[in-house]
């Protein structure tokens, strides 16, 4: 049965360090195609770094990463980053309007985003059309996060990397974004890798989960591992988080 599941992203003994400091240590695991995998773990565990390795913003010091069966270095960087989309917690923006930010992925290819498409994108993330011409600097943290998610979807990535994208959202917005991501996952069979601090979120939306600490994946499997972890450190971490 498990043979049917192909890895969308496959890590093989991957190490990443900066100036002698090991940030990721010997990561060997895979993210399955068309599935939602959540990444949990304390801050500083290396989760964000792992996402940046997946879309080639960083390269490992040793080991190999395969994207859809092809070694990552065989992709052109631009092609890879359109295939593997990334939305960061910090939701960085370029100066200008919401529309300018939404149009950015296409503008980089010399293409245009129609106002209609832009409105639909806003609608998907739960923002009204009137936001289109607002300057980014007038947006709240939560609204910026929504624009950032919508912008990542413009390239229609087959693999979607999400870094704590609901951390500054209220409960209702959080629910809307979860529904949207699950819908995208079902409709386009998009592979989702989702970093979250919210264990409830990991349990409800994730098919699989990885628990990371100190640059290592110390436990991974189907999401119910978050209910009944084997590793002692994971038990302690989960207890602290649940409370």
């Amino acid at each position: 049965m498990a043979i049917d599941y192909k890895p969308a992203v496959d890590f093989n003994h991957v190490n990443y360090s900066v100036e002698g400091f090991d940030i990721l240590k010997n990561i060997t695991d895979s993210f399955l195609e068309g599935k939602i995998t959540t990444l949990v773990g304390p801050s500083g565990a290396g989760k964000t770094t792992l996402l940046k390795l997946c879309n080639g913003l960083l390269s490992p010091n040793s080991g190999e990463i395969f994207i859809k069966g092809k070694i990552i270095s065989s992709y052109e960087p631009v092609e890879l980053r359109r295939l593997v989309g990334l939305a960061l917690q910090s939701a960085p923006m370029i100066n200008g309007s919401v529309l300018k930010n939404l149009a950015l992925p296409l503008a980089l290819q010399g293409r245009q985003l129609s106002e209609k498409d832009a409105q639909n994108l806003l609608y998907d993330v739960g923002l009204e059309a009137e936001f289109l011409h607002r300057p980014i600097k007038d947006l709240s943290g939560g609204q910026r996060q929504k624009v950032s998610i919508a912008r990542t979807l413009v390239n229609r990535p087959q693999i979607l990397l999400l870094d704590e994208i609901t951390s500054s959202l209220d409960r209702i917005s959080q629910q809307e974004i979860e529904d949207l991501i699950v819908k995208i996952n079902r409709k386009y069979e998009t592979t989702i890798i989702w970093i979250t601090h919210n264990l409830q979120q990991a349990l409800t939306i994730g098919n699989y989960a990885w628990v990371m600490m100190n640059g290592e994946v110390i436990e991974s499997g189907t999401s119910d591992l978050l209910h009944s972890p084997v590793n002692e450190k994971v038990k302690l971490f989960l207890k602290g988080e649940v409370k």
Binding site: L57, V78, P92, L108, Q109, N155
Partner: peptide, 20 residues
């Protein structure tokens, strides 16, 4: 550097990422 990384992550080239 956040904006630069953003543009790279959306499939922009270094020239596009550093233009502004």
């Amino acid at each position: 550097q956040d904006e630069t990384e953003l543009i790279l992550s959306l499939g922009g080239t270094p020239k596009q990422a550093i233009r502004t």
